[in-house]
C-alpha cells in the first residue's frame, strides 16, 4: 500500500456550507479519523471542525442519540439527523433548506410551533384520564420534532420561507403541524368538539394541498401519509358533508 493510501484512510474530506449575513460560504474540511475504521457521523465532523479550524461554527445538537430532534441538517441536500448519519467522502453539510438560516447550520425553528399556538386544545376538563390510547396515537407521540418532514412538502413550500422570515408564524402547515392536530383527533380524552376543531384547523392550514401530493417522509419512519394525512383528509370530507 502506498503512503498516500494510508493517509487517505486517516482522513475524510467534506464541505461544510457556513452561512453569514445571508450568504453561503463553503468551507473544505479534512476530518481526522480517530481510528482506521471510524465511520464518523455528521455531528462528529461538526464537533471536530469547531475543535480545530472553525471555533465559532454554529450548529444545533442535543442528546447525540437521535432522541431530541435538534441536530437536523441537510447532507447532500437531504434532511438528516446529524448525530446518527454516517458521512462519506465529499459529502456536503449544510443548514436545512426548508427553514430560514440564522447563522451557519442554525435555522429558525420556532415559527413552526407558533403556528399551532392557541390551536391545540388540551384540557382534561374533568374527563376521565384513565382510558387507553390507541397504537396509532402512540405512533404519533414517537415524533421527535426533527422537521425532516418539511422537505419537499408542497404545503410548507407555499409559505415561501425565505421571504417570510420576519413573520410571526407561517400561514400554511406542514406534516408536523398536521401530526399534532391528528394526535388530538386520536386522543381518547378529546371531546368530539375538540376533534372537529382540530380537523378544521388542519383545513385552515392548507390540507387541500395534500390531495395532489404523493405523501411525506418522516425522519424516524412514522407513516405520515397513512396515519396523519389520509385520516385528516377523510375526516375533513365527513365534516363538509
Amino acid at each position: 500500500m502506498t503512503i498516500k493510501n494510508v493517509r487517505d484512510r486517516q482522513y475524510l474530506n467534506v464541505t461544510i456550507i457556513t452561512h453569514l449575513d445571508g450568504k453561503d460560504i463553503p468551507v473544505k474540511f479534512k476530518y481526522k479519523k480517530r481510528h482506521d475504521r471510524e465511520k464518523p457521523m455528521a455531528l462528529d465532523i461538526l464537533l471536530q471542525a469547531q475543535e480545530t479550524s472553525l471555533p465559532d461554527l454554529a450548529f444545533r445538537y442535543g442528546c447525540r442519540a437521535r432522541n431530541c430532534g435538534v441536530c437536523t441538517i441537510d447532507i447532500n441536500g437531504l434532511p438528516r439527523i446529524a448525530c446518527r448519519s454516517v458521512v462519506r467522502e465529499n459529502d456536503n453539510l449544510k443548514a436545512m433548506s426548508t427553514l430560514p438560516v440564522i447563522t451557519d447550520l442554525v435555522v429558525k425553528r420556532d415559527q413552526i410551533s407558533r403556528q399551532l399556538r392557541g390551536k391545540i386544545y388540551r384540557n382534561s376538563g374533568g374527563n376521565d384520564l384513565n382510558v387507553d390510547a390507541s397504537e396509532d396515537y402512540h405512533e404519533l407521540t414517537s415524533c421527535i420534532e426533527c422537521y425532516a418532514c418539511l422537505h419537499n412538502c408542497p404545503m410548507h413550500e407555499k409559505n415561501n420561507v425565505e421571504l417570510n422570515e420576519s413573520r410571526e408564524r407561517y400561514k400554511y402547515g406542514n406534516p408536523f403541524s398536521l401530526l399534532k392536530l391528528q394526535a388530538i383527533v386520536l386522543d381518547p380524552v378529546s371531546s368530539n368538539q375538540q376533534k372537529d376543531d382540530a380537523v378544521t384547523q388542519a383545513v385552515k392550514l392548507g390540507l387541500d394541498t395534500c390531495l395532489n401530493c404523493p405523501g411525506c417522509k418522516c425522519g424516524i419512519g412514522i407513516d405520515l401519509k397513512g396515519k396523519v394525512v389520509d385520516p385528516l383528509v377523510n375526516a375533513s370530507k365527513k365534516i363538509e358533508e
Partner: peptide
C-alpha cells in the same frame, strides 16, 4: 410510557403552546 421521554416532551410542548397565554422565546 410508550416512546419514553419523547411522550413527556410532547405533553410539555403542548402545555406551553396550547393557548396563547404563555409567551415563549427560543434561542
Amino acid at each position: 410510557h410508550k416512546n419514553s421521554g419523547v411522550a413527556f416532551g410532547h405533553a410539555n410542548w403542548n402545555s406551553i403552546v396550547k393557548d396563547t397565554k404563555i409567551d415563549y422565546k427560543e434561542d
